[in-house]
Computed example of a mutant assay.
Amino acid sequence: MELRQLKYFLAVAEEASFTRAAERVHIAQPPLSRQIKNLEEELGVRLFVRERHGVSLTAEGKYLLGVAEEVLHKLDIAKTSLEGMREGRIGRLAIGFIPAATQSQFPQVIKRFKDKYPEITIELAEFNSRNMRHLLHDGSLDIALVRSCGMDREFESFPFLREPYVLAVPRGHALDGRGMASLGELDGEPMVFFERSGHPGIYDEILGTFSRLGATPEIVQNARTKQTTLALVAAGVGFALVPAMSSRLCGHEVSFVPIDPADNLMEVRISLIWKQGASPLVANFIDEAKKLSQRS
């Protein structure tokens, strides 16, 4: 039984006429009649009762009609779904992100993408940058939003966010209320910092900047998240370097002081990364992220 024969059978059943069915499927009547006869011989049953002014279905024909309608309907659904997958409108997208991404435009990108492509299932998971690179490599993630330090040669990338670090100091600190400060003023000051194992390149570059400016802060506490970092600053544990956007996370117990541009401290850099040769689905997401970035 061929798919073509099912389509011919369905046309004859719905038109109740070989002549009209042949016109509908754009072939001559004799080849259509032969295809139906071949189908009946293959199945060993009569599908139609030939009458003077047309045809009607036998009991076997009525049964096959139901089957044919279901099969062809499922094939139409499959065709539509496959077209959607090919165009990146249907499918599953696994996205990993660092906690800092929630304070950026990342949530707006997700919302815009979901509104534009409602048939795509988005799976979001929070990881650190190093873990996400492994998960992207083995296919567990399709896209990752990571801290970047220089070029990422293994993956394609797009610079999603660049912004300066600022000093977070407890209220009443000597730098509280200053319009600008230099890292060179923080020699020996207690500092809340992240662990080197998380971002060794960024860790070394920041401490290298302190050293270049003649300052060595005393790292008294490590913190994994910006919320914890700011809570410790508010408690008077020490100062911290945080992205400027972190000011949205804290109340009045912490002051945020811009850093002198002459210090030449690195910026916060967050990038979207994905495997080379992006699928249409991934490409559509990156396109939406770029559009929002250009408008900001």
Rank of each mutant, 00 (worst) to 15 (best):
H53G: 04
L272G: 04
S279A: 00
R178C: 00
I286G: 09
L39E: 07
P31G: 03
R52T: 15
G179K: 00
E15F: 11
P164F: 03
H199T: 14
M180S: 11
L183W: 02
L3A: 14
S271V: 02
R4I: 15
V109A: 09
M1N: 07
I77Q: 04
V109H: 09
G201T: 08
A21F: 02
D142N: 11
R52C: 12
E69Y: 13
K291H: 05
E60D: 14
I259V: 05
R295G: 08
G96M: 10
D287N: 12
S211V: 11
Y8E: 08
P99L: 06
A101D: 06
S271N: 08
F97S: 08
L64A: 09
L39M: 07
E154K: 13
L161I: 07
D76H: 14
D263Q: 00
A289S: 02
D204T: 13
R24A: 05
L43R: 10
Q227A: 15
F239H: 03
A181C: 09
G179T: 04
L32M: 05
D187Q: 01
L186K: 04
G96N: 10
A240V: 04
I286W: 15
P118K: 14
N128Y: 00
S56H: 13
Y63T: 01
L135W: 10
F127T: 08
R295N: 09
L10Q: 14
A278P: 15
S279Y: 03
A234G: 09
H199K: 12
M245H: 04
R86C: 00
L39W: 07
L6C: 14
R4P: 11
G44V: 07
G184E: 07
L124M: 05
P118V: 06
S279V: 01
S81G: 05
A28G: 14
I77V: 00
D187G: 00
G277Q: 06
I273C: 15
A101C: 12
A59T: 04
F48N: 03
G54N: 15
G96Y: 12
F9Y: 12
R212E: 10
F158M: 08
A223Y: 02
F106M: 01
A234M: 01
E69L: 12
P159H: 03
A174H: 07
I270M: 02
M266G: 08
V254S: 12
V254N: 09
K116W: 05
L272F: 04
E288K: 11
A28Q: 15
R196H: 07
F9Q: 14
F160E: 05
P118F: 13
V192K: 03
S129I: 08
